[in-house]
Design a binder for these strands. Structure first.
Length: 378
RNA sequence: GUGCCUAUAGUUUAGCGGUAAAACGCCGGGUUGUGGUCCCGGUAUCUUGAGUUCAACUCUCAAUAGGCACC
């Protein structure tokens, strides 16, 4: 299922292959985010042309709309969106966290946690729903995903130890129930469990050991990039990654900026997802490699300090109004090669939908290339 | 030619006798398991001149510009 094919001598970085029902994927890899069954602004064929091996969708959003039953009826999410690559779904655990911290009505949380599961209100129409670990897995099975994630509780940082400890226990209990439920399924997907524990070392190690004992197909590192500094995140990875089985993939959820990914790979992480390339693209931020990127990335992966190997253009800045250079000369997309920065600047200024599309493609191409460069350098 | 109305940020408008508020725009920053155009800053001394007043963007007069009506 997962095989490490090469291990860096200088760092914890490793290259591997993850076998899924929809293809063998080279690790480390990055999953573009398609929360509701679409990478925002892109069609499935465009995502495919980017050479995307796997995307991330979200149980929480899809169960509310259009509903797991409908997608099952459509033949699963793959067929529904005509996607032939792999799909991993987030379990909804993060939404428990992000909705619990409330947006407007601070009094009423949208979420009620209990031992059995979590009751929450739909962000769409306020209707009540109940999610249990069993149901979260069943929904992911109905969606037909390749990799399902156990329902977990993610805690915003900074957090008190007792709260973190409770989340670790609940997450472990739910993971066990997910495992039991999976045992009754005919063809379960790959199932990953989520390590919690915040910035507390003993809780992190406890969480890892409990989950590893249950023997999952992979391990997510959750509860990071939720309010702590990058340095604190790296420290957690330093002691947590060695605690996870060598022969199972490690997935750092929701991370991150290119340098965050590089630092995490150095510490032994194999999988990533993040909204940064797509969301920032929609807001006019363009990622671009510097000329010496390959060297810096290779140096970083042989243990040296990570230098600055890319830049982010804010295409809305006035200085691009008359910049007729290509958006990206190195792109495999003709549009990015042939259209100018000034034109893209204009599209953003007048809010043409095409602007977000071009920027999204540019950024995803950047992220996927980043992973390729990383793999090559290990 | 006569009468009336208006004149505040780039734009459209608020405003009060005591040193200007909003929206949009513009300039810049932000965005980490996505509630799809979001969040945070910055951006004017109130058409000009004279007068009244302790104090005027706010009152008076004139000029200028625009609008409306009538001859």
């Amino acid at each position: 299922m997962f095989k490490v094919i090469k291990h860096s001598k200088q760092t914890q970085a490793r290259r591997g292959k993850l076998k899924t029902a929809h293809g063998v994927i080279a690790t480390p890899f990055f999953m573009p985010v398609a929360t509701r069954g679409a990478v925002k602004h892109l069609s499935t064929s465009e995502v495919k042309v980017l050479n995307t091996p796997i995307i991330l969708a979200n149980t929480y959003h899809l169960m509310l709309k259009p509903g797991a039953a409908l997608i099952k009826k459509a033949g699963g999410l793959h067929r529904f969106m005509n996607w032939r690559g792999a799909i991993l779904t987030d379990s909804g655990g993060f939404q428990i966290f992000s909705l619990a911290k409330d947006k407007t009505n601070s009094e009423k949380s949208l979420v009620k946690l209990s031992g059995r599961g979590v009751e929450f209100r739909s962000y769409l129409d306020g209707s009540k729903h109940f999610l249990t670990p069993e149901r979260a897995l069943q929904i992911q099975v109905d969606l037909g995903v390749d990799i399902a994630v156990c329902l977990d509780e993610c805690v915003a940082l900074p957090a008190k130890r007792e709260y973190l400890a409770k989340a670790v226990d609940l997450t472990a209990d739910w993971a066990k129930r997910t495992k039991n439920y999976a045992a009754k399924l005919k063809q379960p997907p790959l199932i990953f469990a989520v390590v919690q524990g915040g910035l507390n070392k003993s809780l992190r190690l406890k969480s890892a050991r409990e989950l590893v004992a249950l023997d999952f197909d992979g391990y997510n590192i959750g509860g990071l990039s939720v309010g702590e500094t990058a340095k604190e995140m790296y420290q957690v990875l330093d002691y947590l990654a060695p605690e996870l089985p060598e022969d199972k993939p490690r997935y750092l959820m929701g991370v991150g900026y290119p340098e965050n990914i590089l630092e995490a790979v150095k510490r032994g992480v194999d999988m990533f997802d993040c909204v940064i390339p797509t969301r920032e693209g929609r807001h006019g931020r363009l990622f671009r490699f510097k000329a010496n990127a390959d060297k810096i990335i290779a140096a970083a992966l042989s243990g040296r300090k990570v230098g600055n190997f890319y830049e982010v253009l804010n295409i809305s800045n006035a200085k691009f109004a008359r910049d007729f250079k290509a958006i990206n000369l190195h792109s495999t997309f003709n549009d990015l090669k042939n259209l100018s920065l000034a034109y893209l600047h204009h599209l953003f200024k007048v809010k043409e939908p095409l602007a977000a599309r071009l920027a999204t493609i540019n950024n995803l191409e950047f992220y996927l290339r980043l992973m390729k460069k990383i793999r090559k350098s290990i």
